[in-house]
Write a protein that binds this DNA or RNA. Structure first.
Length: 410
RNA sequence: GGAGAGGUCGCAUAGCGGACUAGUGCAAUGGUCUUGAAAACCAUCGUGGCAGAAAUGCUACCGUGGGUUCGAAUCCCACCCUCUCCGCCA
């Protein structure tokens, strides 16, 4: 959510930002409604003033008269307020100055490439073929009991995932992040507050009507909401969390896309970073989160490229976003494995998360980034495959997996 | 699941239809005193909105949403949450 005052003063900038994101908004309509709202509000205020006076004087007759007027006025007022709010919530966070204006993912820029794609003197297999043969991934049985887009991770498959998690947690705790395991179900109201249920976002969610709960699509949703309606002490900032949780996505509208293997599933695990920083310090923090994500992939030895999203490929709350794409040999291309975004004060305003400095309250800036998810597992399996179908375990993960090579036990 | 208690300003507590313009204590901030500190004392001290150049004024907010009333923190209804006890259960 943007500050209505900012919109009043910078309507052109707001329009420009929305256009760059391909979002249709009605700024003029919003400002007109806002003006009407303020006019009504002023009237209501002075009526209430009279009402309070009359009550104090025990002027029952006059009080009754005012009450009647006020009742209808307040009804209009709250309707108008709803209309303003509805329009306000439809306005996306404008992209940062340095973000290229572009239509969609075809206009994203590769800003960095690290490592060399491995050269195989045999035909590399994909992660599912390898995983099934090694007995570490089982999609067939998962579909028997849960349907499409589910998987079992078994044996070293399960261990590899724990290894990624442990490795990420150890590194991030050293960096001062607070480890956290958040709830994976949050109230529908809270999810709405996050702004993820608008524009059809609810189509991608598992919703429990009876309990008023929603399964999170990323632990960012629980962790960011953790400080909802709080005023943080400036001394606590930057406040950084590393969370682990299972994530749930209906993947509606992605039928036929990435159906093979475990790249796109209804349920997967993710280690997520969330930072709360002072107003204006998000650029620095964004580079920091990016550097951590790079360090993690580098430690594994996975070749990757950093892609800076153009305006049209940014989500609704993001002002800047980087994707880290790992090399996937079976596809012969880079695929997104992690990403990081700054939402500036957009989410904070919506969730009412502030910090106090020198007696003044200010909205925090909130950023998020993936440390690891199940996806890097795919990159490991494919990049470190051997001709005999075994997989070399990255050195940094060996102590967690307990071996250097994953071989078929058959 | 059953029975009870309770949600008030950062924290703790008072208030249970009209002087509540929400009191008090603690914490915090500034100051006095002190070589420095502690203590003591003095002062300041909730959030949002609107109007205003500003000083300031008005208004809303006592878990949330409705209702009763000229007037609600206070009464009524619904919901949410927390705690205690019992039952069940990782």
């Amino acid at each position: 959510m943007l500050d209505i005052k900012f919109i009043r003063e910078n309507p052109e900038a707001v329009k420009k930002g929305a256009k760059a994101k391909n979002v249709d908004i009605d700024v003029e309509g919003l400002l007109k409604k806002d003006e009407e709202y303020r006019k009504l509000d002023l009237e209501a205020q002075s009526l209430r003033e009279e009402r309070n006076k009359a009550a104090k004087e025990r002027n029952i007759e006059k009080g009754k008269e005012i009450k009647e007027k006020l009742d209808s006025l307040e009804k209009n007022l709250s309707e108008k307020q709803e209309e303003v709010k509805k329009l306000l919530l439809q306005i996306p966070n404008p992209p940062k100055e340095d973000v290229k204006v572009g239509k969609n993912d075809t206009e994203n820029d590769i800003v960095k490439t690290w490592g060399e794609p491995p050269k195989f003197d045999f035909q590399p297999k994909d992660h599912l073929t390898l995983g099934e043969a090694l007995g570490i991934i089982d999609v067939e049985r998962a579909s028997k009991i849960s349907g499409a887009r589910f998987y079992f991770l078994k044996n070293e498959g399960a261990l590899l995932e724990f290894a990624l998690r442990e490795f990420a947690f150890e590194l991030l705790i050293k960096e001062g992040f607070t480890p956290v395991i958040p709830p994976v179900m949050i109230k529908t109201e809270v999810m709405k507050g996050l702004g993820y249920m608008e524009n059809g976002g609810d189509e991608d969610m598992y919703i429990f009507e009876k309990d008023g709960l929603v399964l999170v699509g990323t632990s960012e949703q629980s962790i960011v909401s953790m400080h909802k309606d709080e005023v943080l002490d400036v001394k606590e900032l930057p406040k950084r969390y590393v969370g682990f949780s299972t994530c749930f996505r209906r993947e509606a509208g992605s039928y036929g896309k990435d159906t093979r293997g475990i790249l796109r599933a209804h349920q997967f695990d993710k280690v997520e970073m969330v930072s709360f920083v002072k107003q204006g310090e998000d650029d620095k923090e964004h580079e920091y989160l990016l550097s951590i994500e790079e360090k993690l992939l580098q430690s594994l030895g996975i070749p990757y490229q950093v892609v800076k999203m153009c305006s049209g490929d940014l989500g609704f709350p993001a002002a800047r976003k980087y994707d880290l794409e790992a090399w996937i040999p079976s596809e012969g291309k880079y695929r997104e494995v992690t990403s990081t975004s700054t939402t500036t004060d957009f989410q904070a305003r919506r969730l009412n998360i502030k910090y106090r400095e020198e007696g003044k309250n200010e909205f925090v800036n909130i950023l998020n980034g993936t440390a690891f998810s199940t996806r890097p597992l795919i990159a490991i399996i494919e990049n470190f495959q051997q001709e005999d179908g075994s997989i070399q375990v990255p050195e940094v993960l060996q102590k967690y997996v307990g071996k250097k090579v994953i071989k078929s036990s058959k």
